[in-house]
């Protein structure tokens, strides 16, 4: 029998700057459920809101250029979002103050297991882009936007990939390289569940009024009041429960009139929920 040399022989290492508590990773293990049930890992996956909200509470006209940029950094390209309403995941934190990275923002209320989504309304417009650039330079000119719902996220061990990262998403794309419709994501894979109606073409530079209605087993998207897709789930998973998210690609997108409606239990009483979370910087 050959004894393996020690698995490591490191010395003089510069420490990694990681200090996260992770969730359980064993698929199907009873311990996973127990650990969550005891609340040991009830820590939110989303980044905590800033303790200082003063710049969000002030009149936009009084903000300096630096303060306006700080607000823009938290949100989509380039729709600023209120960190009390929408948050990024802690694992998506970045360190670059001159860039608005592509990453999803999650509705804080949707982390509540009693939250049930009923409707999302918004007006969406991709910045203009030529079809040539969309096809030849997709890295910088992809008009793609996703509204996520029914999401599940379980952190893995620190520094390792999440144990679970899945959910449904309305994908709107003005690019021929990316499919439109309702998709289901799980890690780096996705399947198209329902294609968008061919009667409605999504184009860059045009505004679209979106209305997504979500029931326990059905999701319907209307674009400019016309049905775009209707999806009926055959499984037991409730479409209304789970994380709600927004994410856009590098080509800027203007989001206005955003409203998310739902219900949740507060002190045992089911109450209606309605929030926007959009931050206007118009002077």
């Amino acid at each position: 029998m050959t004894r393996c040399r020690s698995a490591f022989s490191h010395r003089g290492q510069r420490p990694l700057s990681v200090a996260l508590l992770g969730g359980a990773v064993v698929v199907g293990s009873l311990a996973t459920g127990v650990l969550f049930a005891t609340g040991a890992y009830a820590e939110s996956a989303l980044q905590a809101p800033p303790t200082d909200r003063s710049i969000y509470d002030r009149d936009p006209r009084s903000l300096t250029k630096k303060e306006r940029w700080k607000i823009r950094l938290h949100g989509l390209r380039v729709a600023a979002l209120d960190p009390n309403v929408w948050a990024m995941r802690r694992i998506d934190r970045t360190d670059n103050r001159r860039l608005i990275p592509i990453r999803p923002y999650y509705l804080r209320a949707s982390e509540d297991p009693t939250f049930r989504l009923t409707e999302i309304l918004m007006t969406l417009r991709f910045d203009s882009a030529s079809s040539h650039n969309i096809e030849q330079a997709p890295a910088t000119h992809s008009p793609v936007f996703e509204i996520g719902f029914g999401g599940k996220f379980v952190m893995g061990l620190p520094g390792e990939r999440p144990a679970e990262d899945s959910g449904y998403a309305v994908r709107l794309s003005a690019s021929p390289l990316v499919q439109n419709g309702l998709v289901y994501h799980s890690h780096a894979n996705s399947v198209l569940l329902q294609e968008g109606s061919p009667e409605t073409t999504i184009e860059a530079g045009q505004a679209y009024r979106l209305r997504l209605t979500v029931g326990a087993r059905e999701a319907v998207l209307y674009v400019n009041e016309k049905p775009y897709f209707r999806y009926r789930s055959t499984g037991e998973q409730e479409l209304q429960a789970g994380l709600v998210s927004l994410v856009g690609d590098w080509l800027p997108v203007t989001v206005t009139d955003l409203t998310v409606r739902g219900e949740r239990l507060i002190n045992g009483v089911r109450e209606n929920f309605s929030e926007s979370g959009l931050v206007s910087l118009e002077q």
């Binding site: 490191h10 290492q13 420490p15 990694l16 700057s17 990681v18 200090a19 996260l20 508590l21 992770g22 969730g23 359980a24 990773v25 064993v26 293990s29 311990a31 650990l35 890992y41 061990l157 620190p158 520094g159």
Partner: peptide, 25 residues
């Protein structure tokens, strides 16, 4: 976690799977 402080790993006594890992500086 290869960081300063108490590096901790929690291992299942049944399966040997790592249930959690963290560091406390």
């Amino acid at each position: 976690q290869n960081y300063r402080g108490y590096n901790a790993v929690l291992v299942s006594g049944v399966t040997g799977e790592v249930l959690d890992a963290a560091v406390f500086d």
